[in-house]
Simulated scan of single mutants.
Amino acid sequence: MEFHTADLCDEHRERVKVADSIFTLYGQKRAFYGPIHTVKVFEDNVLVKQALETIPKESVLVVDGGGSKKCALVGDNLAEIAVNRQLAGVIVFGCIRDCAQINEMNIGIYALGTNPLKSIKQGKGLENVPVQFAGINFEPGSYLYADEDGIIVAREQLV
């Protein structure tokens, strides 16, 4: 279903929160929406991979990476999991790598930037907890809408 975040903001101004414009959009999918699933990690992407492998299709994975730009939390292998499992998209409060390959994939990934260094693999972090960054709260079960104008969150499905 086609939507525009600007139109959703106009129609549902009191029901949406708008994320700060701190992200870059990667991948061929220029708009996506779905229910939010979260992981909270720091320079460790084990839980990111597990979530990509298990959350329901058409979901949005929101990764609170603490804003670290010292390594990547998602690369082309993890992006391919998201594509194959038909996830709606991914938000990374951190970095990705393999952006040239990801830009050829049918996925939308918002991230702070890129870094070629892979993350550590310790499996530390939290799953399905509310996370806060970019000026808003991302709560599991809420809905995220993203397009080239930005990212918005609502407690309920709007489209």
Score class of each variant (00 low, 15 high):
R155G: 09
L126E: 15
G135A: 05
A146V: 13
G141D: 08
L126C: 03
K124G: 00
G150I: 07
G135L: 04
D149Y: 14
I151P: 02
N128P: 01
A146W: 07
G125S: 04
V153G: 07
I152D: 01
A146I: 12
E139D: 09
V129Q: 13
P130V: 03
E156G: 01
V131R: 03
G125A: 05
G135M: 04
V153A: 11
A146T: 12
I151E: 03
Q122D: 04
P140F: 00
F138E: 02
V129S: 09
E148H: 11
G125F: 02
A154H: 13
G141Q: 11
K124I: 00
P130T: 08
G125H: 01
S142C: 14
P140Y: 01
E156Q: 12
K124S: 03
A146R: 13
Y143I: 01
N137W: 06
G150D: 01
G125W: 00
L126A: 07
V153M: 04
E156L: 07
G141L: 11
Q132H: 15
D149N: 15
N137K: 15
G135Y: 05
Q122K: 14
N137T: 12
G123H: 07
V153K: 08
I151R: 10
E127I: 13
G150E: 01
R155M: 10
R155F: 01
G123E: 05
G150P: 02
E148L: 11
G125T: 00
V131T: 05
G135P: 06
V129R: 09
E139H: 12
I136H: 06
F138W: 12
F133R: 04
G123M: 09
I151V: 15
G150H: 08
Q122C: 09
P130S: 06
G141S: 13
L126W: 00
Q132S: 15
L126S: 12
Y143T: 00
A134W: 05
L144Q: 02
E148Q: 15
E139Y: 09
F133G: 01
D149I: 08
N137R: 15
G125Y: 00
E127D: 08
G123Y: 07
D147N: 11
L144V: 09
S142T: 06
I152V: 10
G123N: 09
I152P: 01
F138T: 06
N128T: 05
Y143E: 01
A134H: 05
L126T: 00
Y143W: 15
P130D: 06
I136W: 05
N137L: 10
Y143D: 01
E148W: 02
V129G: 08
Q132N: 14
R155C: 04
E156T: 11
R155N: 13
I152A: 06
E156D: 12
G125R: 02
L144G: 04
E139Q: 13
I136K: 12
E156S: 11
G141F: 03
G135T: 07
G125P: 02
Q132F: 10
E148T: 15
Q132R: 15
P130F: 03
G150L: 08
Y143H: 14
I152F: 04
V131P: 04
Y145D: 04
F138K: 07
D149S: 15
Y145K: 08
G150Q: 05
Q122W: 04
D147T: 10
V129E: 15
V131F: 02
I136T: 06
Y145C: 09
R155S: 13
F133T: 02
G141A: 12
I136V: 13
L144P: 05
N128H: 10
Y145N: 10
E127R: 14
E127H: 07
D147P: 08
